[in-house]
Design a protein around this nucleic acid. Structure first.
Lengths: 219, 219
DNA sequence: AAAAATATTTAGGCAAGTCTAAAAATATTT
DNA sequence: AAATATTTTTAGACTTGCCTAAATATTTTT
């Protein structure tokens, strides 16, 4: 009753795609996300279906069973706990954690997960503002919102981006906005929804397009 | 130029068997250690040989090349660092660390290893008294000795066993000797090499057979 | 030094997980 | 609703890492 690393990755991917609104997850969506071919996906979902981890009907896409969801949430819990560890204890920055957490999440040990959780003080959210399921699989909703939704007067800090194109990341860099940067929303223009924000260094105006692509957590 | 988990396990096994005195490591020795079949070992050794990680001649056993040794030492370094982490930070006991460290040692990230090392304060020895290679692969000799070799008057603590049969472990348990137990050698009988030792609780006499099967680190 | 025992390798097979190319089903256009 | 495009599945192949059974070397015994 134990899953391979690859099976775990598929379950996690199905969970995440479902989480973004899909009731049934298509073969192609999975292939894209997992950077593999559709035929490989078909192979694997048939295996997962036989194991009772997904509901699958040919050509109709796939959905996690309760058991499959349980497994997926356990992996996500481990992934996010390790991210907290890497950032808080080992000086990893926002963009360095993912690959490593992706490996650590597959380490199998109930005790390890439980002790790590305790060691970190039972965190409820990871460095990206995403919720960490507790040992029962329960979790609070995400704390992150796009900057465009923050009300004037609020102070928040950057935890991620929607559009991760290098063009956008260069823009942010040029404007002194990094992950972790604190900022205060001073005002919002009703005409074009542009915002005036204040960072430690200076005050600047950003367009709504920018504000919609930046995830923040409100303090 | 990147090795699979299985390849890493073979290299580590070859290193450990060599470390116990063997110049050439036999196929069977590897099969026993890795709990696999001799034919599987032959398969793998041939692959490692093609990769330049071992020197191999049919029927003559195998030896690590300098490159193979470098890889093996890196894995051992990671294994032992994780053992320190598990014991010192996550309350793992002596016998619980191995399986988990065995998984963690394969996580690939230079930064992770370096930061973990620093976080733990650059330890030179793991909880079993075995040396931890530094980032250059250099290490001090093992600190552990069998209790039988400890001079009267010395204080030491248990870090492991030679014979890990449950019969022996039960004996230790019954006599209040656990891993981590502090003890002082009071005297040694020249006739049968039995020893009088003192633990926190009481003073007792143990035979040479027992003393030869218990690893300790001298304080 | 031949025979017997043991160790090692080869040959052929299997499961997981991937791929390409082709076939089949579904969705979209016209 | 027929034609076209897209998506999904099947078929067949490859690699890794393991297995069993048989063949071949080496070592030990007599």
């Amino acid at each position: 009753m134990r899953n391979t690393r690859s099976e775990e990755n598929y379950l996690k991917a199905i969970y995440h795609i479902s989480d973004q609104g899909a009731v049934k997850v298509s073969t192609n969506a999975l292939a894209t996300r997992l950077m593999t071919k559709a035929s490989s996906v078909t192979d694997m979902i048939q295996r997962l279906s036989e194991k009772g981890l997904v509901n699958y009907m040919k050509y109709q896409g796939v959905r996690l069973t309760p058991e499959g969801e349980r497994v997926a949430i356990k992996i996500i819990r481990k992934h996010r706990l390790w991210e907290v560890f890497l950032v808080e204890k080992l000086n990893f920055s926002w963009d360095e954690v993912h690959d490593v957490a992706e490996q650590l999440e597959h380490v199998r040990s109930e005790k390890l997960t439980a002790e790590l959780d305790a060691y970190l003080g039972f965190p409820t959210h990871d460095p990206h503002g995403d919720p960490i399921p507790d040992s029962e699989g329960q979790f609070k909703p995400s704390q992150k919102v796009v900057l465009a939704e923050v009300d004037p007067g609020s102070v928040c800090f950057c935890v991620g981006v929607v559009d991760s194109s290098s063009k956008f990341l260069r823009y942010l860099d040029k404007n002194g906005i990094n992950l972790g940067t604190q900022l205060k929303v001073l005002s919002k223009e009703t005409f074009d929804d542009s915002m005036t924000i204040k960072t430690k260094e200076k005050t600047k105006v950003i367009s709504n397009l920018i504000a919609k692509n930046l995830y923040v957590i409100i303090n």
